[in-house]
Each structure stands twice: as C-alpha cells, then as structure tokens.
Amino acid sequence: MANPDFEELVETFEFLDDWEDRYRHVIDMGKAMDPLEDALRVPATKVDGCASQVWLVPKIEGDVFTFRGESDAMIVRGLIAVLVALYDNQPVSEIGKIDAAAELGRLGLNDHLSAQRSNGLRAMVERIRETAASAS
C-alpha cells in the first residue's frame, strides 16, 4: 500500500481532466515545499543523472525514512514533492518494496515527461532506494 499522501495525490489526479492541470498541480506541489538550506546543497546530496540541479537529503530516525529535496527547475521540484508523497515517513524496510514505476504510472507521469525528466526521476528514485538499503 502506498503512502496515504500519495493515495491522496492519485485521487487528486483523477479529478484533474487534462495533463496541463496535472502538470500545474505538480509544479504547485513543488512551490509549496520548504526550500533546502544552501548548506545542504553540496556534492554529497546532489543527484547525478538529472538534467537539472537536484539535491536530496535523506534522514532516517529509528526505522522511519524521510527526505527533503530541492531543484532549480520548477517541474523537477514538483517531482521531488511527488516522491515525498510516495516515500516520506515510510519504514526503511518498505522503501525497496515500493514499485515506483507502477505507482508513478498511476499518475500518468510516464506518458508525459520528457526522456531527460524520466531519467532524472529514475535517478532520484534510485538514490532514495540506495539510501534506504544502506540503512537496513
């Protein structure tokens, strides 16, 4: 079962009639995120494989995985917000079990992102999964 925040996002996407509205919603989600402090925008938190500048800062407390992120591109910032909805506050042991491609497919993202954006999204998912796996 996906994170309740992600299920809410899926429901929201079902009400949005066209991709333009969904795209705008993803951007608005990114705008609503708190910015990442400059001190956290360092090479260790930067995600390779993204056309835009992307930083992910994971945090594991006990068995709970959380993360924050930032990008210089509005749509990518929104995609980070989507990933937060999918992965944030999940048990570390569950992160690797989440089928990100299938879950994101429920939003129709696979059909509407450029190849570069799709590659960047995969790179972010991989970073999340690697971080959780190394903490297990």
Rank of each mutant, 00 (worst) to 15 (best):
M1K: 15
M1A: 15
P4G: 13
F6R: 11
E7F: 10
E8P: 08
L9H: 02
E11M: 09
T12A: 13
F13S: 04
E14K: 11
E14V: 08
E14Q: 13
D17W: 07
D17P: 01
D17F: 09
D18V: 12
E20R: 08
E20D: 14
Y23P: 02
V26E: 00
I27A: 00
I27G: 00
I27M: 01
D28E: 15
M33E: 03
M33R: 00
M33G: 03
P35S: 07
L36M: 01
E37P: 01
L40G: 04
L40N: 04
R41P: 00
R41Y: 01
V42K: 02
A44M: 06
G49K: 01
A51P: 11
S52D: 02
S52I: 05
S52R: 03
W55D: 07
L56I: 14
L56Y: 05
V57R: 00
V57C: 04
I60M: 04
E61W: 10
V64K: 12
T66C: 11
F67P: 03
F67S: 13
F67W: 11
D72K: 09
G78L: 08
A81L: 06
A81Y: 05
L86I: 03
Y87P: 01
Y87D: 03
D88V: 07
N89D: 15
P91G: 14
P91H: 13
I95Q: 02
I95A: 04
A100W: 05
A101C: 14
L104W: 05
G105T: 13
R106E: 01
R106P: 00
L107E: 06
L107M: 12
L109A: 14
L109T: 09
L109V: 14
L109P: 02
N110I: 08
H112I: 09
S114A: 10
A115L: 11
A115C: 09
Q116W: 07
S118T: 12
R122T: 07
A123S: 07
E126T: 14
R127K: 12
R129I: 08
E130C: 10
T131L: 11
A132M: 03
A133K: 10
A133Q: 11
A135E: 10
S136F: 09
